[in-house]
């Protein structure tokens, strides 16, 4: 679970000598973890402990007041559900639309494919700041602003998903699907029953990265959503903090709940995650 390395691991069982580097690396890495550990600690404090001056460093016992406060707050569970809906729909849509387009670009010869592909590639450098105002105007014409639809539509499929899957499909030997094609399978059938089962690593990468981006996004929800019952967690957290200044343990508990899903997703898919990140930058 804790191997962020792409290095071959040393043979199991072989004991490694103690290295002086631990003296540097242990405090350094603890320094990075400290703010998150303290976040966790403060979420278990009582209001009295946290609002005292100077504030307590550690909670005296585990108090669930903060967690109960956010969970009983009618809006917080709703924000969690909103965020989960947006993220899950975005992940599924990216997998479906990304696979379809990626497969067509990788395997089917069709009119205009090269131009289309080049244009889609080029859109990756367009910064969000110049598209956000018209995207908002477009969403309001479609009467989607202030609904989850406004959050879902722009994240249905990214060029990244299309290209990552296309690159993966290109590396699969064509013979694999030729048998299926000769047996009379349609393109769609071939894609679903032959190609996709082989593409699990690429699909996992797309899923992990889409989940992370949609779950963590703040700018677009801030623009597209106005009613508090339509907030995502990120947006809710930012305003919750302002409205509940004296309820710090609750704010911190809300923050823990917000971070937890991405943290778990990251730790589960760490290898996939780190490899996809590095292969692009280093081998590019």
């Amino acid at each position: 679970m804790t191997t962020a390395d792409t290095v071959r691991r040393p043979g199991r069982g072989r004991r490694l000598p103690f290295s002086g580097w631990h003296l540097l690396l242990a405090p350094l890495s603890m320094g990075f973890a400290l703010p998150l550990l303290w976040l966790l600690a403060s979420s278990f404090m009582t209001n009295a402990e946290i609002n005292r001056f100077p504030p307590a460093l550690f909670p005296h016992g585990i108090h669930l007041d903060g967690y109960l406060y956010v969970l009983r707050n009618a809006l917080f569970p709703r924000w969690f559900a909103n965020t989960a809906i947006v993220a899950i729909v975005a992940v599924l849509a990216n997998l479906v639309f990304g696979s379809l387009a990626g497969y067509a670009f990788a395997r089917i010869r069709f009119l205009g494919s090269r131009v289309l592909l080049a244009v889609m590639l080029a859109t990756m450098v367009i910064p969000f700041q110049i598209t956000m105002i018209p995207t908002f105007l477009l969403m309001s014409r479609l009467r989607l602003t202030d609904t989850l639809g406004a959050l879902i539509v722009p994240s249905l499929v990214t060029p990244f998903a299309v290209f990552l899957l296309r690159q993966f499909f290109l590396r699969l030997p064509p013979e694999l699907e030729e048998a299926a094609r000769i047996d009379g399978c349609s393109r769609l059938r071939t894609l679903v029953s032959v190609i996709l089962p082989l593409a699990r690593p690429a699909l996992a990468t797309v899923a992990a990265l889409t989940f992370l981006t949609t779950w963590n996004d703040l700018t677009w929800p801030l623009i597209a959503i106005t009613s508090d019952h339509q907030y995502t967690l990120q947006l809710g957290l930012a305003t919750f903090q302002g409205q509940h200044r004296t309820e710090w343990p609750a704010v911190m508990a809300g923050n823990v709940i917000t971070i937890l899903p991405v943290l778990v997703a990251f730790l589960l898919a760490q290898r996939t995650f780190v490899q996809s990140l590095t292969s692009t930058a280093v081998k590019g």
């Binding site: 191997t3 390395d5 350094l28 703040l218 917000t258 971070i259």
Partner: peptide, 28 residues
């Protein structure tokens, strides 16, 4: 380098990268 716990050190240093800006903002 290949030493014990190196995977843990790497994970700890990388983990803040997946924490959203809103969460960081609220925490800090």
């Amino acid at each position: 380098r290949r030493i014990r716990l190196i995977g843990l050190y790497r994970t700890l240093i990388f983990v803040p990268f997946v924490v959203s800006a809103a969460s960081q903002g609220v925490l800090f």
